[in-house]
Design a protein around this nucleic acid. Sequence first.
DNA 1: CATCCGATTGGTATCGTTGTCAATTGAATT
DNA 2: AATTCAATTGACAACGATACCAATCGGATG
Lengths: 340, 340
Amino acid sequence: MNDGPDFKGEKPNRTTLRHVATLAGVSEISVSRVMRNAPNISDKLRSKVMEAANALSYTPNRVAGALKNQSSNLVAVVLPSMNNDVFAAVLDGIESELNEHGLHSVLGLSQYDHDRELQVIRELLSWSPMGIIMTGLHHTAPIPEMIAQLDIPVVQIMDIEGTPIGSAVGISHSKAAVAAADHLYGKGYRKIGYIGAWNERPERSRARRIAFEGRLAELGAPLVASMIVDERSSAVAGSRTTADLLAQHPDIDCIFYANDDLAMGGLFHAMSANIDVPGDLGLMGFNGIEIGKATPLPLSSIQTPRFEMGQEAARLLLSAKTDGHRVVDLSFQVFEGKTA
Amino acid sequence: MNDGPDFKGEKPNRTTLRHVATLAGVSEISVSRVMRNAPNISDKLRSKVMEAANALSYTPNRVAGALKNQSSNLVAVVLPSMNNDVFAAVLDGIESELNEHGLHSVLGLSQYDHDRELQVIRELLSWSPMGIIMTGLHHTAPIPEMIAQLDIPVVQIMDIEGTPIGSAVGISHSKAAVAAADHLYGKGYRKIGYIGAWNERPERSRARRIAFEGRLAELGAPLVASMIVDERSSAVAGSRTTADLLAQHPDIDCIFYANDDLAMGGLFHAMSANIDVPGDLGLMGFNGIEIGKATPLPLSSIQTPRFEMGQEAARLLLSAKTDGHRVVDLSFQVFEGKTA
DNA sequence: CATCCGATTGGTATCGTTGTCAATTGAATT
DNA sequence: AATTCAATTGACAACGATACCAATCGGATG
């Protein structure tokens, strides 16, 4: 294409160490060291290099660095979906902590599909991230091995009931469910129902339902009915499902929901249908989302530390080298709203 | 030149092209070609290579590829914050489209800070992304130049009123505000107020307020008052601020909010205070979030295509090479709720 | 059967940075 | 002034994949 052989040298390539080194009259490796704040650099050298680097507005090429180092300033973050308040908050927490250390997330969404998760993780690992944060404790076979090969820290988030690959941070979902059951029982409800959605994705919601059901049985007020719909969680779905459940089981005096979106829908249904909450019907959600606290009757819920979970996950990742594997049980709280 | 087999071979390094090539009895470059589905590969070679690659569960090292190619399968995504439904939905849209093409997002959050944005973009660009998606049309000086140097496509999202660097996708915020004004005026409201938060971040909300105010003036029903609080948008803030605004201006018969979170708070306040909505007080939000549609009185709002915006941004990025710079005006819609 | 041409396959250099180890400097010591 | 040793600085070879160009193969052609 080009007749002049070294015509290519002309193309406005990114400025590299070499350019800075040439301008500063030093070696490339010295520039590299200055840029990385390596020890044992004379002030004279440093200032020469910095001057040249600024003049050329040089930015190190992370790709080359990562290749040489077999590691980067990227963190692989694998979440099921972004279609969900919860994970947005978690990601926010992760980013807030990572950013303070000059790290960045490479995102992978599994869409609640194990095959997809595997593929996504494989792709993300091919970027030599310095660590990986993933959701839940259950992962298909080759995943732990793949991560072990790279020898990078892993943090699993959301759940701590099981065997983590590396570190983990989350809450005990079964304890949270028990707390919810105790709370509702304590309020005097005896005919309690449960509403979930989207075939209990994420899986953790199933663990909660089962623990909830178990606890109610222990208390002698067994779950009256549970209704799990196929569609995604939303207030609209929660509203309709609540109506359906109450129609089928008029004796129900309280409903525990898989999440606050559904519960908000339930609350709105009750408002529309002039049902006395919490008198005739108690409602309890899960997560403690912000908007639930602004309703005329604040939504009773289990408050989960989503942002903090992300933050802590990032911290665990950063401290893994020195502190090793740790499991952090972030506490949830029963949010005493006025709906149950 | 290895008398003793590689000492280094001992360390449990990632499997590389070389390992696959050796096992398959072919050259490295051939393996590379097979992995990339290059043309002119015999079926025999392909199957030999695939077999070996599977046996070793080889994954190409993207870092090395990116270094050689000066380009990667990463897309830099720069958003102001994740603390916001809106950007989570946008990111979801971006990911949904990118994932279909084997691309991944590297995330950068500017936290609404221009210096931070600059720094984040610089860092992300050092990963040789194949493109960059960023928020808004206003960016501090060196940013366009930095991107131009890499010669990668840019897509700016959210806003289309201004001069994009490359492609852009969003809505006309001033038109949306005019539509809101027209809607409210059409419903008969004449004493209209405005509530915003967090010092009008993102900037687009200011553009809306100004256009809204301008339109109302044109219509002969000038804005009665606007109240912009310092704290982050939330239903709680919206509720309190609504109470404050109504206390200061009892004659207000309608409020337009910077977003649905605030508006939901307003609606909840009205419910608690037994204000007749939409009779005595009209309420209109902005964005059309899902939960607003489940309230007993569905929240009137301007429906914005957030997920689609992300999707379209990714599409624009992918088609930039063939289609060049484009500006896509995604339409908003007046969502006719029952609060105004 | 020799020749030719396109289809395949391989060798080599290179992307930009950094670890390793060698070379140099310069101040402190005897 | 000679010697010593730590502090600096530099040369070189990787990291793993791929572009470029050369070499080889196979079948069609005359």
